[in-house]
Design a protein around this nucleic acid. Structure first.
Lengths: 113, 113
DNA sequence: CGGTTAATTAACCATATAGTAAATTAATAG
DNA sequence: CTATTAATTTACTATATGGTTAATTAACCG
């Protein structure tokens, strides 16, 4: 388990349950029971997922009476977005090549008329 | 190991060696030995990392004589970019709130003059 | 106080990962 | 054909992950 922040974030996102938890938090803060409800999984399993998300700083937790509400912390996603932006030109280039190819096809069709 | 494509991609990216390999491939295709060279790691370890990247469709491989050149396949990064774009508004909102707060500070300072 | 609800911790299990060294495959070069 | 280079496969290790059940902590309610 590499311990640099970017690896932690990617690792935390590499699980559909954890991504679903994040999605669920986009509508506002939730308790652990709220978050666990849609999943066919015991509470300790959810607690573990939340720890992974917390370690990656993707969520923040507080305490309200016996509840421990979680809320989304988008900063690490921003870091991933920045990392990935270095690669954006590669799929944009592919897209340009595709466009070019499609234009060539169209030109060819016109010539065939 | 969740087997949906997005989880595979995030998992593949959750390792600094694999991200460095991808970065190295941005300058063009490379052989396995080329890719292994900067790392203090044996060849089989690199082969394993390449398999993870290949399974995630982040690289594509071919054969040229006794070499097996790798090249970048950016499509899965595009998928991640699309996934993350759903969350973009969250850090943009935070930024807006910060801007708002800074403006309030400035207004306050003017009133204090 | 005693009972209930929310959540975590502890102990455990099966499987996956990340690496190694040694053996093997595949193609080239002489 | 033989030796060399590139890379993979095999077999093995240690550690991490993702889940379970049972026990424990923490705060509220009557």
């Amino acid at each position: 388990m590499p311990s640099d922040p970017l690896s932690y974030t990617f690792h935390a996102l590499a699980d559909p349950t954890r991504r679903a938890i994040l999605a669920s938090l986009t509508t506002g803060q939730k308790t652990v029971s709220d978050l666990a409800e849609p999943f066919d999984m015991t509470m300790p399993a959810i607690t573990k997922h939340l720890k992974v998300l917390e370690k990656a700083k993707l969520i923040e937790r507080s305490r309200e009476a016996q509840y421990r509400p979680c809320r989304l912390q988008p900063e690490p996603l921003k870091d991933i977005d920045e990392w990935i932006s270095e690669y954006r030109k590669f799929w944009e280039e592919s897209f340009e090549r595709l466009e070019e190819y499609l234009q060539q096809l169209q030109t060819k069709e016109k010539n065939d008329e």
